[in-house]
């Protein structure tokens, strides 16, 4: 019995090493001038300075943040409305909404991006705009996550019961939804929105195929510097990973808080 536990520990440690080595090596690589031998030489923060002072990096960071906002807000509102109406008035439609929401999960980025591109690229005006195409694509790619997040939270607060209770107290259903249900599931909405931020931050295929060069995110920036300067790109890499880890940490903390709150109730 004791030996089995030891084996489990060894296995977990091996997987952890496997997962962490690429990160650690890139971190060391970004901090030293020269790593030709076994021991790296010449500690310097030069690479970070050159990334952080690069106006291209600033633009990419700003673009990455800006391009997140509209799709996430839009998708949350749209899915909230749809799920409210479907659960409160048309339970029979729920199945179809679910199917539509889960399709992007199997189709994924490449096919989605080329299909949107091929449909809208020839036209003129609003819908042929690269930014609009990209926004639409991001809405669809985060749809499964937003849908699952909102649906699970609605279930956990028992939305139909809340609506009935509010109605008995003389409140209309739609009013009850926005005044009672939405505030109660806000933390669930925030968690799934942050997951969506992570997905959009990590996207390369949609932005490359749809936006061309009109919008550049951090991933595209990394790809560009990768071809020119490996030390600068390793610093960029570390900065990107830091942002990602920050998002994940917030998600984990919020999730743990939610679960704890549920248990106490």
């Amino acid at each position: 019995m004791k030996k089995r536990k030891g084996l489990s520990t060894v296995f977990i440690v091996i997987v952890l090493i496997w997962l962490l080595v690429p990160l650690l090596v890139s971190l060391i690589y970004s901090l030293f001038e020269n790593w030709a031998g076994i021991v790296p030489k010449g500690f310097t923060l030069q690479a970070y300075a050159s990334v952080l002072t690069d106006p291209q990096f600033g633009k990419a960071l700003l673009d990455t943040v800006l391009i997140c906002i509209v799709p996430i807000l839009l998708t949350n509102v749209i899915v909230l409305l749809a799920l409210f109406v479907v659960t409160a008035y048309f339970p029979r439609l729920e199945k179809y909404v679910q199917i539509i929401c889960m399709v992007p999960y199997t189709v994924q980025g490449v096919i989605l991006s080329v299909s949107i591109l091929s449909l809208y690229v020839g036209g003129k005006g609003f819908f042929a705009s690269r930014v609009v195409m990209l926004t639409g694509a991001y809405c669809i790619i985060i749809l499964p996550y937003v849908y699952q997040g909102i649906r699970n939270s609605m279930r956990s607060v028992n939305m139909p019961m809340l609506l009935d209770a509010a109605q008995m107290l003389g409140c209309s259903r739609i009013e009850a939804f926005f005044k009672v249900v939405v505030p109660n599931i806000m933390s669930g909405i925030i968690v799934s929105s942050l997951l969506a931020v992570g997905i959009i931050f990590g996207d390369y295929v949609l932005i490359r195929n749809l936006a061309g060069s009109t919008v550049t995110n951090l991933q595209m920036y990394l790809y560009q510097v990768m071809k020119a300067d490996s030390r600068k790109s390793s610093a960029t890499f570390i900065l990107i990973m830091l942002v990602m880890f920050l998002i994940t940490t917030v998600v984990l903390v919020l999730k743990a808080k939610n679960d704890k709150g549920k248990k106490e109730r």
Partner: peptide, 13 residues
């Protein structure tokens, strides 16, 4: 979330 361009870069290094 570690995939795509950053992963390719780390493996190149």
């Amino acid at each position: 979330n570690f995939a795509g361009i950053p992963l390719a870069f780390a493996y190149m290094i």
